[in-house]
Design a protein around this nucleic acid. Sequence first.
DNA 1: CCTCCAAATGAAAATGATTTTCATTATCTC
DNA 2: GAGATAATGAAAATCATTTTCATTTGGAGG
Lengths: 156, 156
Amino acid sequence: MVRDGSAAERRFEGRLRSLRSAGHRITAQRRAVLRALAMMGCACGAEDVHARARRIYPRLGLVTVYRTLAALVREGLAQTVQLDDGRVRYELRDDGRHHHHLVCLSCGSIARLEACALGRLQSAGLRRGFRVTAHRLELFGYCEDCQPSGGRHEAR
Amino acid sequence: MVRDGSAAERRFEGRLRSLRSAGHRITAQRRAVLRALAMMGCACGAEDVHARARRIYPRLGLVTVYRTLAALVREGLAQTVQLDDGRVRYELRDDGRHHHHLVCLSCGSIARLEACALGRLQSAGLRRGFRVTAHRLELFGYCEDCQPSGGRHEAR
DNA sequence: CCTCCAAATGAAAATGATTTTCATTATCTC
DNA sequence: GAGATAATGAAAATCATTTTCATTTGGAGG
């Protein structure tokens, strides 16, 4: 599980190296958080990361998870996603691949949308003298499994 | 200030009527919150609304502001905006006019962007079997007054 | 106009996510 | 391997927001 040369493993090591070269020490806790985050299918909260990372390093504290996530974000290795419940979600950044989110209002799943067609809006920003350097887009609706017309919907 | 027939005043009365017909009582506190919100140039937090509404109704409590804002959102008269600081911002909805936000990373100002060119992305969502019913977009960058090249920038 | 009651209010306490403090532990440089 | 210093964990602190509960008040019905 640890010593294969898979792409995932190479990415993991790369992130560790980034952290180290940014002046951070590599600890078992940070490895666990990083691995947990990499295992997550989509953006999730600190509590979720904690639960999963604990399976790797059981005495891991929630505080350390918060600190590690903050460090990852600071170093550009992870990013946050804001939904409507007052909790911050985190996800690793794959290279610099920019993406948005499809948030299902029924089951709460968060899928990625790799396409980004915002050039037009960025120009609209420019037009008003505003220089856009970043943006965040979340799309809300119903995923394939939760289509109201599709059969199995779920009261929530 | 209260009895002119301006468009703003008509909108204010319309919102009161909406609240009333949704089964809410009209109180001095709610009037104050609604007026304060209408005076705000852009989305701002409950604390800000409270400060401004207090100038109209001084014994207004922050709790009431929260409750009133929640009611306004529930009735579709206001909406929330999520930025990166963990605080919810509120703004009145003008009719159903959909817009996004231009958040200045230097001075923190929040301007509106009326254009919405997201049809393309919505189709992208559809393509994956996801039915988009709503979306939220925030653009970050530098407003006209804060352009790094423009002269007066502000360390933050 | 008056009464009544559910809805609204405010103060204080509770909550829940996140951050800070501080004493202890452990990484990594030399 | 030793030492400086960053990282950790537990507990306490914060901060925005929500809940509780006793009191007040809007507005429907008389």
